[in-house]
Simulated assay, not measured.
Amino acid sequence: MGKIANKQMICEVLMEHAVQDKSIVALCSDSRGSGSFTSFADQYPEQFVETGIAEQNLVSIAAGLAKCGKKAYAVSPACFLSTRSYEQCKVDAAYSNTNVKLIGISGGVSYGALGMSHHSAQDIAAMSAIPNMRVYIPSDYLQTKALTEALLEDEKPAYIRVGRNAVDAVYEENNVPFEMDKATFVTEGEDAAVIACGEMVGPAKDAAELLAKEGIHVSVIDMYCVKPLDEAAVIKAASGAKGVVTVEEHAPFGGLGSMVAQVVSRECPKKVLNMSLPDAPVITGTSKEVFDYYGLNAQGIAAKVKEAIA
């Protein structure tokens, strides 16, 4: 199978289950096209709700449907879902503990050329701060499939952020290590630990390969479960390492780096360096151009690891 965008995989999994499970309902805020949910709307019109450009209504309607026994999947650009409808996410979904899965599409800098208004560089911090809200950022379509299937089995609210474009697979078909709310060790090494989430896991894996050629052996941890954070995995990775590097497509405050630093400082103190987007409007460009500009690529991560263990 070729590259598939994570958002498309979510739709495919839901369509597969919606044949038998009529409680599955997808909702979009004029985002069925960008969210890859057009096929769901066409095939299951009675299980689809279009709210138009009204993200607050999107979340509230999803919460209402969930209270009526539906499995509600609210699909909307992450930049709007995590800001315009923040109160509804907090009150209607999380505080009311409803079975709403908030699918933040085109997360991070996926909308690159559209600028800061369309970037979601604050959503990890914002959504993680809400009690009862889980936060997931899968790294590739294979992990996204496993996560989506797992989320169908519970009735708790969650925020799932996925990118806009297809990315290279981190894992292999028929070999996707996945345990709900448990991080995955992509590689293991004793020199340093690189803890990444989402689209940053691929470059972290590539960085480990570059470093291995220089005799530096690195553990790469796929922390798709940003909240609840797998603290045991953080401690395991950091305890035997000379330094820790976190990598995220997010602002430098309140995200994965902050969470990991809290755990490491409490349990096994050592240097933690955070790689993230800057605390400033991000340059205009494609995701790759933005990542390369800020060093969020294999070469940049490898250099940061050397700094962490120096």
Rank of each mutant, 00 (worst) to 15 (best):
S60P: 01
P278T: 13
V170M: 01
I53G: 10
A183K: 02
Y136P: 08
A129E: 12
F185Q: 06
V244W: 06
N175S: 14
L142N: 11
E248M: 06
A237F: 06
G243M: 10
E267M: 10
P203C: 09
S82R: 04
V59D: 13
N97C: 14
G300H: 09
V245M: 05
M200P: 00
E50A: 15
S239N: 08
S29D: 09
T98M: 15
G243Q: 06
G255D: 03
V247Q: 08
I105E: 02
L210W: 09
T286D: 11
A150D: 12
F48D: 04
G240T: 11
K270D: 15
P45V: 11
S276G: 05
E307N: 06
E199I: 13
Q262G: 11
Y86G: 02
E199V: 12
C28T: 15
Q88G: 10
Y294R: 08
G33T: 13
S96I: 01
E199F: 03
S23I: 07
S34F: 02
K22V: 01
A41T: 02
A166L: 02
A121I: 15
N132Y: 13
E214K: 15
E172N: 15
E55D: 12
E190I: 01
F253N: 08
L277H: 03
S276T: 14
D206Q: 15
E155Q: 14
D42E: 14
A74W: 12
I235H: 08
E248G: 00
L58K: 07
P269N: 12
K182E: 10
A207F: 05
V272F: 10
E87L: 05
E149G: 04
V247N: 11
K236A: 03
E267R: 08
D42T: 12
V167G: 00
S31L: 14
M127N: 04
A196D: 04
A233F: 07
S239Y: 03
M259G: 06
V19H: 12
N132T: 15
A158L: 01
E12L: 08
